[in-house]
Amino acid sequence: MSSPQTYFGSLKHYEKGGVTIINDDPKNYAFSNIFEVAAKSKPYEKVAVGKNLKYVIEAVRAEGDSPWYETAHDEAVLVMDGELEVHYVKPDAPQAAAGKQGAIKLAGEPKGKKMGWVKIRRGHEALLPAGSAYQFRAKGDPGVMLIQTILGDLTIERWADICQK
């Protein structure tokens, strides 16, 4: 008996399903593929692939060092392909006001206390905790992240480009 093979997609190799309409509009399903979106994105563009009122999930191409971000609420990152580090700082002078939705971009590494770092690979999920600044560092081949967050200034919505019509 051969052992089962679990199929993961990747930036280099993904297959896409789709919506077959019987009596509906395919746009209702906002169908896209995270790897396809990341393949066509610039590094660290935060492209919404899901939106539920104020909440979004963003497909992000991880390549090289990202800008530093800060968030006033928890976010989560799930690695879908590749390997990257997340470095965390507790800023002395937070830029994201309480209640600010979505991540904001910082001019550079903020002054503050180093909180630590994580190295995560495909299937790993990391917390981007409220009140912290963070940076992604992808040293090898480009990777793909899925970020669970709230729609913010940096979220890019290009539904017509990414979704089945």
């Binding site: 199929y7 993961f8 997609g9 993904y14 297959e15 896409k16 399903g17 789709g18 919506v19 077959t20 309409i21 019987i22 009596n23 509906d24 395919p26 209702n28 399903y29 906002a30 169908f31 896209s32 593929n33 995270i34 790897f35 396809e36 692939v49 899901g50 999930i57 497909a59 879908m80």
Partner: peptide, 18 residues
């Protein structure tokens, strides 16, 4: 209960359920 669509989802696909 009338049929509206079929959705095939493979690894990396994202879709909304209205």
């Amino acid at each position: 209960g009338r049929p509206r669509a079929k959705v095939v989802m493979k690894a990396g696909d994202v879709a909304a359920m209205p």
